[in-house]
Amino acid sequence: MSTSTSLKPVDGHAGFDFLVRSALAGGFAGGIAKTAVAPLDRIKILFQTHNIEFRQFAGSWKGIPDALRFIIRTQGVRGLYQGHTLTLARAIPHAAVGYTVYDKASRLLMPTPETQTSFRRLLAGAVTGLSAMPFIYPFELIRVRMAIEMRHHSHRPSPWNAIHTIWSEGRSRSTLPILNFYRGFTISAVGTVPYRGGIFLIWETLNAHSRERLSAETLRTHRTQIHLAIGAIAGTVAQVVTYPLEVVRRTQQASGAGSPERMIGFRETVTQVWTQAGWRGFFSGLGIGLIKQVPTHSISLAAWQVAKQILDV
Rank of each mutant, 00 (worst) to 15 (best):
F70P: 10
S4Q: 09
T87A: 13
E268G: 11
Q272C: 05
S298L: 06
A105G: 08
I310P: 01
Q253C: 06
R145F: 01
E169N: 10
T85W: 01
R42C: 01
L7F: 15
L86K: 02
P111Y: 03
Y99I: 03
R21H: 15
K8M: 05
R107E: 13
R280E: 12
I299E: 10
K44V: 07
S284I: 07
K62I: 10
L123N: 03
R173T: 00
R121Q: 12
S300H: 07
G59V: 11
A58K: 09
T224S: 13
F282Q: 14
P111D: 08
A232Q: 10
R145T: 04
K44G: 06
R171F: 06
T35S: 05
S298W: 06
W203K: 13
E212L: 11
A126D: 02
W304C: 11
A216L: 12
H209L: 10
L68N: 06
I226P: 00
A277M: 08
D11E: 10
T35Y: 05
A162C: 04
D312F: 03
S4R: 07
A229D: 09
L46T: 12
A38E: 10
D66C: 01
T117G: 03
A162E: 12
E140L: 04
R249A: 15
R196P: 10
R151N: 11
R220Y: 06
I148W: 00
S118K: 13
R156W: 05
A91C: 09
D41Y: 02
T115N: 07
K8I: 09
G31Q: 03
G79V: 02
T3W: 10
Q272V: 05
A302D: 02
T115P: 01
S188N: 04
G191P: 00
G76M: 02
L68R: 08
P244N: 11
I45C: 11
R223H: 08
F135K: 04
A162S: 06
N51M: 11
F266R: 07
L80V: 05
G278F: 00
D103A: 15
G79I: 04
L286Y: 03
R250Y: 05
G289M: 00
I52P: 06
S172C: 00
V101F: 05
S298T: 14
P159W: 15
S2G: 15
N180A: 11
Y195G: 00
L40A: 10
A277N: 04
T35M: 09
